[in-house]
Design a protein around this nucleic acid. Structure first.
Length: 208
DNA sequence: GAGTAACT
DNA sequence: ATGT
C-alpha cells in the first residue's frame, strides 16, 4: 500500500508547507477507523472560550496531554474533561508525523477537531506549547475546508486555500507562529465520513 | 473574497 | 478573543 504517494508537489504558503493528497483513500479510511476508536474512549466535547462562549468545533485529544479551553483559559491537560486519561496517539497518525515533520522527536499530543457544516475556527496562533520551535502537523479528513493563513501579528494580509481530504499541512520554521483559522466547510464535498463534516488531526509537541 | 471594527 |  502506497501510504505516502504524493499527488502533487508540496506548496509553500508563507512558510506553511501543504502536501496535497499525501494520504490516499485507503490511508484516509484507516485513519478514520482509528479516530472512531479514539473517540469512543475520549468522547468529543464542545469547549468554551475564557468568556464562556461555546466554540463551534467539537474536539478531543490523544497522547500524554490534550488541549482544552474553558473559563480558566487554554492549556494542555493530562486528562479528558470527563476525568479519563487521553488514549494513545494511533500509530497510523504518528507515521504521518514521521513522514513530514522533519524532526527527531515524536509529538506528545494529537488534537482531534470535528467540524460540522457550520463550524468555523477564528484566526489564532498555536502558542500553548512549552517550546514553540517544534513544528505542528495538521491532517485533513472529510469535507473540504477554507483555510486562512495570516501573519505573526494579528491583522494584515492573509491568503486562503481549500484543504481537501488527505492533505497534510506542516506549520514549522517561518510558518510556525502564523495566525490561521478555518472560515468555511464545504458540506458534502467528501464521502469519507458517513455523516459528513471534517476531521482535523493536529499533532504537536506540547511539553518541554 | 478579504480586512476592519464593534460588540458580547 | 480558537467568540459573533
Amino acid at each position: 500500500m502506497d501510504l505516502f504517494g504524493e499527488a502533487a508537489p508540496p506548496r509553500d504558503i508563507r512558510g506553511v508547507i501543504v502536501h496535497p493528497g499525501l494520504l490516499d483513500r485507503a490511508a484516509q479510511e484507516a485513519l478514520v477507523r482509528d479516530v472512531r476508536t479514539l473517540v469512543e474512549a475520549a468522547p468529543l466535547f464542545r469547549p468554551e472560550t475564557r468568556r464562556g462562549q461555546k466554540m463551534s468545533v467539537r474536539m478531543t485529544s490523544a497522547g500524554s496531554v490534550g488541549w482544552v479551553s474553558d473559563r480558566r483559559g487554554y492549556r494542555y491537560e493530562p486528562q479528558h474533561p470527563a476525568g479519563v486519561p487521553w488514549p494513545a496517539i494511533p500509530r497510523s497518525v504518528l507515521a504521518i508525523w514521521d513522514e513530514v515533520a522533519g524532526v527527531d522527536r515524536q509529538p506528545d499530543t494529537c488534537l482531534v477537531n470535528f467540524y460540522d457544516a457550520d463550524a468555523k475556527m477564528g484566526m489564532h496562533q498555536d502558542r500553548d506549547e512549552a517550546d514553540l520551535r517544534w513544528p505542528v502537523v495538521s491532517i485533513s479528513l472529510g469535507d473540504e475546508a477554507l483555510f486562512r493563513i495570516g501573519n505573526e501579528e494579528r491583522g494584515g494580509r492573509t491568503q486562503s486555500l481549500w484543504l481537501r481530504s488527505g492533505d497534510v499541512a506542516v506549520l514549522g520554521g517561518e510558518g510556525r507562529m502564523l495566525h490561521h483559522g478555518i472560515d468555511r466547510i464545504r458540506a458534502g464535498s467528501s464521502d469519507l465520513l458517513a455523516g459528513g463534516g471534517r476531521l482535523n488531526l493536529t499533532l504537536r509537541v506540547a511539553g518541554a
